[in-house]
């Protein structure tokens, strides 16, 4: 793939000619401007401090101290355990839904390349953010020591051909640890409603025996494509908790 065409709409990318683009033309693959405009980026300064949701679209009554109502309920439920917070890059909208359909269900794996820049940017922002925290609060911080993509069940993996979370995680440019297995081939999360998702208590995830050592005492970053209710993340965190990691956070491409 060369970079002259948009990854998604395949129209010719027409980026404005500037001195910078003249001196170092951008040949990386990616989306054209009109596709990028349709992606709804979440403002990191005004997003929920726990789930990364864009708070602009939420009624002020549901927000307390930059934490959204859902996260307060999670806190009260006592099911958070070691799970800390989620970071998200885009809000869910019609356009990104189309992109994800193409990516996940039609199998256009190369679309992950289009998100590479943003994922890397988000990752370095997260680390930076934590470093600043360390300086102020003397909290130990820094890079995540293990990046764990949320796995698919064996059956689904064969059906789809690839794990979208793993592809996205690889784009972070950090080594990834494939520590989890998804045992049961349960119903797709996207086919369940909110109640059904939250009711599920038994985790479908299991830690691989040979990976326990790698995870113990480490800071873990879970990676997935979508954060909706947060149920998946907490179930995965529960499975990892057995190995006593230091902390678990997560990064998703989309919130919604």
């Amino acid at each position: 793939m060369s970079g002259s065409h948009c990854l998604f709409c395949r129209a010719e990318k027409r980026e404005p000619l500037t001195f910078l683009s003249l001196l170092s033309p951008d040949t990386s693959t990616g989306f054209c401007l009109s596709c990028q405009e349709q992606l709804e980026r979440i403002d990191p300064l005004y997003s929920c401090r726990l789930c990364g949701r864009d708070l602009h679209s939420l009624e002020p009554a549901f927000v307390h101290d930059q934490i959204c109502h859902d996260c307060i309920r999670w806190k009260q439920s006592g099911r958070n355990g070691l799970y800390g917070r989620n970071y998200a890059i885009y809000s869910y909208n019609g356009f990104i839904k189309e992109v994800m359909t193409m990516f996940k269900f039609r199998g256009d794996a190369i679309l992950a390349d289009g998100f590479e820049k943003e994922l890397k940017k988000a990752y370095s922002r997260i680390i930076d953010h934590r470093l600043r925290f360390r300086f102020l609060n003397l909290r130990s911080g820094g890079e995540y020591e293990a990046i764990v993509p949320i796995p698919l069940s064996r059956e689904r993996l064969v059906e789809r051909g690839f794990n979208q979370a793993e592809l996205l995680a690889r784009k972070l440019g950090q080594p990834i640890v494939d520590a989890l297995i998804r045992e049961k081939n349960e119903q797709k999360q996207s086919k369940k409603n909110r109640r059904e998702r939250l009711l599920m208590r038994e985790t479908p995830f299991h830690l691989k025996n040979d990976q326990v050592r790698i995870v113990t005492g480490k800071k873990i970053l879970l990676v997935d494509d979508l954060y909706t209710t947060g149920a998946t993340m907490r179930l995965a965190a529960t499975a990892i908790t057995a190995a006593h990691p230091k902390q678990i956070d997560s990064l998703t491409l989309i919130h919604g």
Partner: peptide, 20 residues
């Protein structure tokens, strides 16, 4: 485009033209 394929456990080339 090329992707890692879980079915044949190799890198597979796929056609983007007729994905639909």
């Amino acid at each position: 485009a090329v992707c890692t394929c879980a079915r044949c456990r190799k890198k597979c080339v796929y056609c983007r033209h007729c994905l639909n």
